[in-house]
Amino acid sequence: MDLFVSQLMNGIERGVIYASLALALVLIFKTTGILNFAQGEMALFSTYVTWWLTEQGLAVWLAIVTSVVLSFLGGAAIERVVMRPVEQSSPLVIVIVTIGLFLAFNSLAQVVFGVEAEVIPRAYPNERWDVAGVNLKMDTVVLVGILALECVLLWLLLQRTKVGLALRAVASNPESSRLAGVSVGSMLMLGWGLAAALGALAGSLVVPITTALNPASMQEILVFAFAAAALGGFDSPLGAVVGGLVVGVANALTIQYVDALDGIELLVPFGLILAVLLFRPAGLFGKVHVERV
């Protein structure tokens, strides 16, 4: 039982990590209809920026905030310069361009910041508490808190502000939005900027917990994030969070209890992705398009 609970906690922690990156994927998919294969590597690069800033003597929290802001600007710039010309193109072109970004960010991170694994200092003390026999880690609490905060802010932005309305409008019908006076380009840049910022935050908080920072840090996380986003529905932020938790817990329990999948645990997320896409392409929370003509 204890083992089960500790695996459950472990799964929740991982799930929150996947959810944070899945949120970024969803933001971009919602606004531009693109699956961004480079999301993980963009977050990786941002995390390297955080690390570099701490190396320059900046306090960790300050480094994270700076990196998040820079990533927002960088994400918006990528949308404008790299994605805008191909946004209406075929899936092949979009895959190629996002894979191009993937390669570029991954290797540039190494060229610029070095190939050795780096340690990012933690932004908060590494404490553990014993709550009713359950071992509760500060990491889990902080990650859950940050994710909850992200969700609330995102919900407020999308549902309660004019800019949020415009963002959703662009996702729904760019042409009508333009005719209503919305600058579609700015909204797409905003979407990418927000996604990059979320990724930067996720990476900067996650890497110190899981591993030292290395060029492959984000790749497995991206796979799980895709599974989370697929499960929840690529256009649903709420779905991303629930999906992330489900995938995280399912994976932790698989590793613990299913010997048949030893070493091939990644079958779980990809199996999920395939199953969802085959049988319920809109995901658990995605909107099935209802439209009368």
Partner: peptide, 15 residues
């Protein structure tokens, strides 16, 4: 490490 970076950027420019 530079060759993937050049591949990546080259791909985008190509598109």
């Amino acid at each position: 490490l530079l060759s993937p970076a050049i591949f990546g950027i080259g791909l985008i420019v190509m598109m």
